[in-house]
Design a protein around this nucleic acid. Structure first.
Lengths: 207, 207, 207, 207
DNA sequence: CATGAATGAGTTTTCATTCAT
DNA sequence: AATGAATGAAAACTCATTCAT
C-alpha cells in the first residue's frame, strides 16, 4: 500500500517531463516562426531554442510539418476560444447587438498573437499537412451558421449557407487585414469605427 | 553615322531575343509554380522548362525571388487590367449598377489564372521582395476610392478611406475564397447569386 | 548460512527471468531482422518487439552487434545440430551412402530458418564482431574432415585438408544457393535431383 | 567551316570534364569502400576523396546506392572480361583442357581487385538497387552453359541447366573462398593444386 | 534492476548561385 | 552572351547509446 503512492508520482514525473518537452518545443516553434520566419525555422534551431536536443524533437514530432501543425492547432484553439465564448454570450441576443460584439471578438481573436498569426497566414505554405491551416474557419462558419439559424426571423436572407459565407468571410478578412496590416486602425477609437462600419456592413446585409 | 542604321536593327534583334528569353523564363516560372508548387520550383527546373541554360537565367534575373516577382507583376497586371477596364466602364454609372459589375469583375479577375493565383496566395511566402504580392490590392483600393469620390452624393458613409477598405477587402475576400475554394460556386447560376449577395452586402453598406 | 537456501531460489528465479529476457531479445532481434532487414533493425524496435525497455536491452547486451552475434550463434547452433546429428548418423557408413545423406542434411540445415539465414548471409556486414558470421563453416569443416579421416581407405585424395575444403565449400555453396535463390529447386523431386547431382560431384571427386 | 573544329573541342572538353568527375567519383567510392568499409563510406567522404564537391556527386549520382552500383558494374565488367576472354579462348578445346583453364580464370578474376570484391561480397547489403550485386554470376552461367552446349558429346549429364548450376556455383565458391579467405592458397604452387583439385571435381562430374 | 526520456554525432540530400570555358 | 559543371551551406532526419529517476 505504501509503494503505489511512491511509484505513481514517478510515473507522473516522467509524464510531466515529456509534456514539458513537448510544450517547450511547440512554444519554441512559435517563437522561432515569429522571430525568423517560416523558411529560417529549421528543426535544429527550434530544438536549440527549446533547450532540447534534436533527437528529442524527433521523439515527439515525426517531422517539421507536425511541429507547425501543433503550433497552428494551439493557436487556432486560442482563437476559437474567443469566438466560442463570444457566440455563447450573444446566443440569445438580437443581431443588432450580436454582430458588433462578434466583430469585436474577431478583432480580439486576431490580436491574441498577431505576429504568429501573420507568419502562419503569410509565410506558411498550405502544402501537405499544412493544407488545413485555416481549419478554424470551418468551425467559425459552423458556429456562426448556428447563431443565424437561431435568429432566422430577424433575417432577410434566403440561403443561410451563402449568408454565413458572406458574413464570416467578410468579417474575417476585414479584421484580419485591419489587425495585421493597418496598425493605425488599432487605437481604441479606430477599432470602434471599424467595428461600427463592419457591423453596419453585415447588418445591412442580413436585415 | 553609317553604323547606327546597321546596329539598330541588330540591337533590336538582340533586344527582342532578350525579351523573348525573359518572357520564356517568366512563363516557365509560372508553369513550374503551378505544376510543382512554390517549394519544388527550383531555378534549374525553371531554366530547363524555359529551354534556357541556368547561366542565362541568372543573366536576366539576379535571383530566384526576382523571377517570382516578375511572375507576380505580370499576373497582377493581368488582374488589374480587368479591374481597370471595369472601373472605366462603370465610372459614370450609379453604384447600384456599378457595384454588381465590379463584383463580377473581381470574380473574373480571380479566374484569369486561378491555379497561379492560388500558388501565389497560398504557397508563396510574403518575405523579402515578395512582400508585395498583393500590391494589386493597393491599386484596386485607389481606383475604387476614386470611383466612390465621383459618386459621393449617392453614398451615406462618412470616411471614404474606411469605406474603400471595407468594400474592397470584402469583395476581394469573397471572390477570392469563392473562386479558389468553392468550385461549387462557379456555375453561372451560383456566380450570379454570389454577385447578387455580395453586391447587396456592399450596396446596403454604402447607401 | 540460513540465507543461502533462501536466496538461491530467488537467485534462480531472477536468473530465469534474466534468461527469459535475454531469450525474448534474441528472438525479437531475429524477427525484426527478418521483417525489416538488417539496416532497419534498430535497437529500439527490437526492445519494443521484445516487450522490454531499451534500458533493459542494454542491461543484457552491450551493443547492437552483440544482439546480432547472439542471433547468429543461436542460428548456427541450430544448423550445426542438423549437421552434427547427420555426421554422427553416417559416421560408419561408406561415402556412397554418407555423401548424399550429408548433402541432404545441408539442404535441411538451410531450410531451418531460410529467411533469417538469408538476412544474415546477404544483409549483415561481416564487420567487427560480426566477422564470424560463417563460423559454422569451420565446425562443418572439422566434422567433415573427421569423417573423411575415418574413411581414408575409400578415398583417392592426397591432401585431406584440401579435399575437405573442396567438398564442404561446394556442398555449402550449392545447397545455400539452391535453397535461398532457386525456390524452383525445392520441390521434393528437384531436391532429389540436386542431391543426386551434388553427391555425384563430390563422390566423383573423392573416389 | 572554321568554327566547327573550334566548338567541338569545347564540347569535348566539357564532356571530358564530366567524365573525369564521374570517374573520380567511382574510383573514390571503390577506394573508400575498401579503406573504410561499406558503413563508413559516406557520400561526403567519397566526394572529399574524389576531390569533388558533394553537390557534384549528386549531379551525377542520384543517391549513395547508385554510386555503389556503378562501382559494382565496373568491377563486374572487369571480372567478366577475364571470364569472357577465357571462354572465347577455350571455346573449341575439350573439357579436360578447358575446365582447368576456366578454374584458373576464376581465380584470376577474383584477384583483379580482391579487397573490393570482398567488401562488395561481405559488407554490401543486397537491398534496393544493390540486390543484383551478383549479376555477373548470371552472365557467367550463360557463358558456361553455352560452352557446355558446344561440347555436349563430351558430357555425361542429362540436365544442362543443372550441370551449369553445379559447375559454376562450385567453381565460384571455391575460387572466391580460396582467394578471399585463404591467402595461404595463393602461392603459385597452392593455386596449382587448387586448380587441379577443383578441375578434377568438375571434370569427374561432367564426364 | 527497470524504465524511457534524452542525447547528438553523423548521414543523406537539395538547390540557389558562381564561374571557367 | 551562353553554357552547364561545380559549389557548399544548410536542411531534415536516424539511431545507438546514456543516465536520471
Amino acid at each position: 500500500m505504501a509503494r503505489k503512492p511512491l511509484t505513481k508520482p514517478r510515473k507522473y514525473a516522467s509524464q510531466e517531463r515529456s509534456r514539458a518537452t513537448v510544450d517547450a518545443l511547440i512554444a519554441a516553434t512559435a517563437r522561432v516562426l515569429v522571430k525568423e520566419g517560416f523558411d529560417k525555422a529549421s528543426t535544429n534551431r527550434i530544438a536549440e531554442k527549446a533547450g532540447v536536443s534534436i533527437g528529442s524533437l524527433y521523439q515527439y514530432f515525426p517531422c517539421k510539418e507536425s511541429l507547425v501543425v501543433a503550433v497552428i492547432e494551439r493557436h487556432n484553439q486560442e482563437l476559437m476560444q474567443v469566438v466560442h465564448a463570444t457566440l455563447a454570450e450573444v446566443a440569445s441576443q438580437p443581431i443588432e447587438k450580436a454582430v458588433p460584439r462578434l466583430v469585436l471578438a474577431a478583432v480580439e481573436a486576431h490580436r491574441v498573437d498577431p505576429k504568429l498569426h501573420r507568419v502562419l497566414a503569410e509565410q506558411t505554405p498550405r502544402t501537405g499537412k499544412l493544407e488545413n491551416i485555416e481549419a478554424y474557419n470551418r468551425d467559425a462558419h459552423a458556429l456562426f451558421r448556428a447563431y443565424l439559424e437561431g435568429h432566422r426571423d430577424e433575417l432577410r436572407v434566403a440561403d443561410l449557407d451563402l449568408a454565413t459565407f458572406i458574413c464570416v468571410t467578410s468579417i474575417e478578412a476585414l479584421t484580419h487585414t485591419a489587425v495585421l496590416h493597418h496598425s493605425e486602425m488599432l487605437t481604441d477609437e479606430a477599432v470602434g469605427r471599424l467595428v461600427d462600419e463592419a457591423s453596419r456592413l453585415v447588418l445591412g446585409y442580413l436585415q
